[in-house]
Design a protein around this nucleic acid. Structure first.
Length: 577
RNA sequence: GGGCGCGUCGCACAGCUUGGACCAGUGCCCCGGAUUCCUAAUCCGGUUGACGUGGGUUCAAAUCCCACCGCGCCCGCCA
């Protein structure tokens, strides 16, 4: 390949990068790499077919390349399968759990994701943020970067204030329509996010039509901002947040740090942002005393071209506080990534404008995702009864997985079966959401989300379990797993294909880390599992008449890669299922 | 009205960043097969496509550009 590069480098208009990119072309019939020469031929003012034939004939032999030949305007290379198998398995064996990752460390990065208001349980729409963010963090870590994940807890805004507002009133004083939301609920049986979150939608609707309630809520908001929150407020926030985090823990999502919005008010950093925005180039004062930035020059799609950063009553807004939060992040991390829903796009643009206004040159990188909608279309709504709670989905998935595990493995203890069922349920849900590109909206469908077959998390987990069982059996039989196979044994179509997919993992991880497209890793996981299943189905290993050791080594390598891929996706490795 | 995103078999997705073996790949569904043998949550075979529409650039377009159509979200002194 190097020789090819050198030959082409003599051609005017050809740069090394454009040749290297072509090397990722997928393998086809009889070839592993195909280089189209049209563009080089054009630069050299030669017919492409002629150039291809000449190069194919004149390139020096390269280790690992079994054959090269010209077809039309393409030069094709066929890898030596034995060489590829030995080399790939040697690398997998040497890298172990870090196979697929590595690379340059890069700057320390902060990934902020989820940051859902502590006012209600997670529904599966909200959880998309957490799963994209958590998976991205895993991929970046695997790629060699130092990652800190942060959850920004909004304990200042109206959402969390509504919870405190209603719960600090005696129940006798609750409006009937709000009280009704507690019907049939038992505080001792429901987690705090579910129980305390019950009245929220009703409260939200109520204050829209009852001015005195709205005024009372506004007063509470002001108190929160002044640092005069009722003692119970933090308790409610923590209780609900705790419940929400318990949901996320079921799908293996955890956080390194939590940043409470109130802390930015109390340490004066929000005040400093306000002071800097006051003196900003496009700062304006509105009639009622509110402070804003005239965003005309930024072309934001806002009708009045105003980004208000202090209300008429002197309190601040979410964008103002978010500037303070980002300055804090910039102070600690050279690189900052925010995972945001599509509805926050304008906020992201506003944030950039505000940062520009205070002369801050650094910017966060945004990962935007589209919503998960309900089958009939539209967002999930508690009032319309179209909400699917993460916990409900996981419970149902666990029930189904449990039944399947018990049917397959009656010998397992209840505890073992439960552990496996939980892992399968979580795997199905995680995979189902993260397999789709972030910029696609998803119409949620129960049966799809609960599928354990085909392109699913359990499919990948199953392939891993099969590989594990096979190796376990080998060890039980006293067969050692060899570390260096003979590639010459691994030449059936199923083996060659499996080796090729196995060898692809490092490129997949590097690409996913660069583009922040986490779904590509899910796609790869399926490809590898599928390729392994095909091999498994068609190729005897333990009972192989010849080449058993090499096949065992291949299985060990694939198991390693499958396991690493499961880690990247946050799916539990199961040794049996 | 303005901004952003999406539009690929019946359904759900991949491929688009970096045009090239894509006369387009995967899963589900449907039909037919495979288990004396390492887990059948598997595998094999079959059926299914105007890549939203129209134009442009190019030797070459699902991929890049323009327009239009459809869908989603946003355009708050909410977050």
């Amino acid at each position: 390949m190097t020789a090819l590069l050198e030959r082409l480098s003599g051609v005017p208009g050809v740069d090394r990068g454009s040749v290297e990119r072509l090397l990722d072309t997928a393998g086809g019939d009889g070839w592993d790499v195909a280089i189209p020469l049209h563009r080089f031929a054009a630069a050299a003012k030669r017919p492409p077919n002629e150039l291809a034939a000449e190069l194919a004939a004149s390139l020096p032999d390269t280790p690992g390349v079994a054959r090269r030949f010209a077809v039309g305007a393409y030069v094709n290379f066929e890898a030596d399968p034995a060489w590829l198998a030995e080399r790939t398995l040697a690398i997998v064996g040497a890298r172990g759990t870090s196979y697929g990752g590595g690379g340059a460390a890069g700057p320390e990065v902060c990934v902020e994701h989820t940051s859902a208001n502590p006012n209600a349980p997670f529904h599966i729409g909200r959880v998309r943020n957490a799963l994209i963010g958590d998976t991205l963090a895993r991929i970046l870590r695997a790629a060699g970067q130092t990652v800190t994940t942060q959850y920004y807890v909004d304990d200042i805004g109206r959402q969390s204030a509504m919870v405190t507002w209603i719960w600090t009133q005696p129940k006798e004083a609750w409006p009937p329509e709000i009280l009704a939301t507690l019907e049939g609920a038992d505080e001792r049986e429901e987690r705090p996010d579910h129980y305390l979150g019950r009245p929220y939608p009703a409260v939200s609707a109520y204050v829209k039509t009852h001015p005195e309630a709205a005024a009372s809520l506004a007063e509470l908001c002001e108190r929160l901002e002044r640092g005069e929150a009722p003692e119970a407020h933090r308790r409610f926030c923590e209780a609900i947040l705790g419940g929400m985090l318990a949901s996320l823990a079921r799908v293996s999502v955890t956080f390194d740090e939590f940043v409470w919005e109130s802390s930015l008010l109390h340490d004066g950093s929000v005040d400093r942002v306000v002071a800097r925005l006051r003196g900003a180039p496009h700062s304006v004062t509105e009639a009622n005393g509110a402070l804003a930035i005239d965003t005309t020059v930024y072309g934001l799609p806002k009708e009045d071209a105003r980004a208000v950063f202090v209300r008429g009553n002197g309190t601040t807004l979410y964008p103002t506080r978010d500037v303070a939060y980002h300055l804090q992040k910039f102070g600690r991390f050279p690189r900052v990534i925010d995972v945001l829903g599509q509805d926050h796009l304008l906020h992201a643009k506003t944030l950039e404008a505000l940062l520009n206004e205070i002369g801050e040159a650094r910017r966060p990188e945004f990962v935007l995702y589209q919503y998960i909608t309900v089958p009939g279309g539209g967002r999930m709504s508690t009032r319309k009864g179209t909400v699917v709670w993460l916990d409900t989905l996981l419970d149902e998935a666990t029930d189904r997985a449990r039944a399947e595990v018990r049917a397959r493995h009656p010998e397992l203890s209840e505890g073992e079966a439960e552990t496996i069922a939980l892992a399968i349920a979580a795997g199905a849900v995680r995979y189902h959401i993260v397999r789709i590109a972030a910029d696609k909206s998803v119409a949620f469908q129960w049966e799809e989300a609960l599928s354990f077959e085909g392109r699913s998390g359990p499919f990948v987990q199953y392939a891993y379990a099969r590989a594990s069982s096979l190796l376990r059996k080998a060890l039980d039989d006293g067969v050692a797993i060899p570390t260096s196979p003979s590639g010459a044994d691994l030449t059936t179509p199923a083996e060659r294909d499996l080796v090729r997919v196995l060898a692809r993992l490092p490129r997949v991880v590097a690409s996913a880390a660069r583009t922040k497209h986490v779904h590509t890793v899910a796609g790869y996981a399926h490809d590898l599992a599928e390729s392994f299943n095909r091999f498994y189905q068609t190729t005897p290993v333990l009972k192989a008449e010849a080449g058993r050791d090499s096949r065992l080594a291949l299985v060990a390598g694939v198991r390693q890669a499958l396991g690493n891929t499961l880690d990247l996706l946050g799916l539990v490795r199961l040794e049996r299922m």
